[in-house]
Write a protein that binds this DNA or RNA. Sequence first.
DNA 1: GTGAAAGCGCTAACAC
DNA 2: GTGTTAGCGCTTTCAC
Lengths: 334, 334
Amino acid sequence: MVRIKDIAKEAGVSPTTVSNVIHGNTKKVSKSNIDKIQKILEEHQYIPSMSALMLAQNRSRLIGVLIGGVDGKRRSIEGDPFTSIMLSALELEIYRKNYYMLFHMSSTSEESWKLAATWKVEGLITLGLTAEQNIELQKRCQIPLVSIDNYYEGRERAENIGLQDFEGGFKMGNYLIENGMKKILFLSDNDIGVDHERWLGLQRAAKENGSVLAKHWIMPIKQEFQMQWLKDQLEEICKWDALFFASDRYAQEGILVLQDMGIRVPEDISVVGFDDSPYAKMCRPQLTTVRQDVMKKGKMVVKKLMSLIKEEPFDGEERLPVELVVRDSVQNRE
Amino acid sequence: MVRIKDIAKEAGVSPTTVSNVIHGNTKKVSKSNIDKIQKILEEHQYIPSMSALMLAQNRSRLIGVLIGGVDGKRRSIEGDPFTSIMLSALELEIYRKNYYMLFHMSSTSEESWKLAATWKVEGLITLGLTAEQNIELQKRCQIPLVSIDNYYEGRERAENIGLQDFEGGFKMGNYLIENGMKKILFLSDNDIGVDHERWLGLQRAAKENGSVLAKHWIMPIKQEFQMQWLKDQLEEICKWDALFFASDRYAQEGILVLQDMGIRVPEDISVVGFDDSPYAKMCRPQLTTVRQDVMKKGKMVVKKLMSLIKEEPFDGEERLPVELVVRDSVQNRE
DNA sequence: GTGAAAGCGCTAACAC
DNA sequence: GTGTTAGCGCTTTCAC
């Protein structure tokens, strides 16, 4: 590995001069030296050593990306196409900004903090942590942190990029109501954050139409049990006009369970999802859902983080818009 | 950030002694000092600085994970649940071995090499690069490299962990033949590496049964065009007894296209896939497929890389076994 | 315009 | 058992 010292020797100048040329501080360097040094730099394919840079400048150019899961399991990443698209969006943007991505599946805040400290990470992006975990991490690390898809209730909060979940639920709610649904059941595996907001949106839509009943049921969080649970509830579920699942994946499973039991979608019951993931098109009927732009979300996350690191104002959206996508899983009831 | 020097001062010893205690070289350190130092270390939550460590020891504890794509696009990561599961498996294992994961979506070998050199990465794991790209990268970087799911034809090769793809194709081929299929069509979007081997396996099975016809058709590589292409070929496709798709995702799309056109699976035509991805269970009929264990593959990749780094022999499998999973998408023809 | 020298936090060889 | 010291590759201050 060729070092600045070697380049300097070959050019017959001091390391300082070479360093200046590398960094474009060429005001006080003679033209001839600039050219000579640049040529040698090229020839030897000089690559700076990050370790030395880190030590000398006390910055790492590293962004830590932390993915959490429910009770230490890798929930968010498995089977969920969004996580991988998000990861790819993040890396793309991080690299574009001349940073590097250190990736970790975080289990405890302790562990995450150690990682960040060990590597003097300049910023942290988290996905799949709870609001509390983010706040704790933020406190310990004292570095810019942007969470994805969190909602903060109290006064303590972390910076966050998310969606207009409430509006998404509201839009879908209105669409269902316009199509004559009188009884709408919202299904998710929790009642916090994103899913809660989507539910609130639906609820608002229902309230604005006195005659519509909306309710929220919580499914088991473990995937293995969900389909069985749906089967068990079948009789009750069939009493509703429409099922609004908090994500496409669940909606697709829901449709399969219904169809397996001989219930027709959307003739007997309408089913909708949220996200517009690849799953939405890969079922029959194709799923009516709410679209989010994951690539854009990732881009915004990195933009936000950069503005935090550089202490510049952020001119972007913290809650990205969503859009209703009408396909075939809803049938008008009027 | 507290440094070794600070700890040493507080304990009234030299930095060397502290360093020794940290690294467990306590043969020549007095018991009282060990205790005292460990206590102070605890109190101050001492965290070593990676930059200094890297510089002093000339090693980074970093593993670079490179994900490539077709013509610079993020092919392998999007919509493909395997990439994200693999990523999670890799990170889990890397961290377990006390290394850290630097993640990059590589577009050119130049870029990847620079990344590896800048960070003095101790090993490289690649996914979705071509055999040629891996060989080139290997040559430039001169560090341990393990590719995933590649096949190397010539004498130049990189270390690799993959599947028994040929056997998988062969097993499935035999299963189809046992079920009376006389004409089997294999469908993939390329004819190299993994897909080629799976096809060879099927071909062998067909050859061992003189009366069975097997053929291989190549679909367009762009996902947007695949379903349309399948529709266009429908008439020809229906002449076959069974369709063997190189992956579950394609199989699921195939089933949807067939069903949309009024063709029954498996009554009119049998369809099978490969991978046993989440998609396999999320279609009707549920897919008969060949299962691979992605978590195990990821584990093996890291194990192989570690053995390369430590220059120890590797006692593991380079081609992991696969297993036939019979579900409902094949109907006996006899 | 250019270069010498100190220092970033740590390790390891060696002296005591 | 313990401490001194040089050095890893680079930046930065300051002197020339």
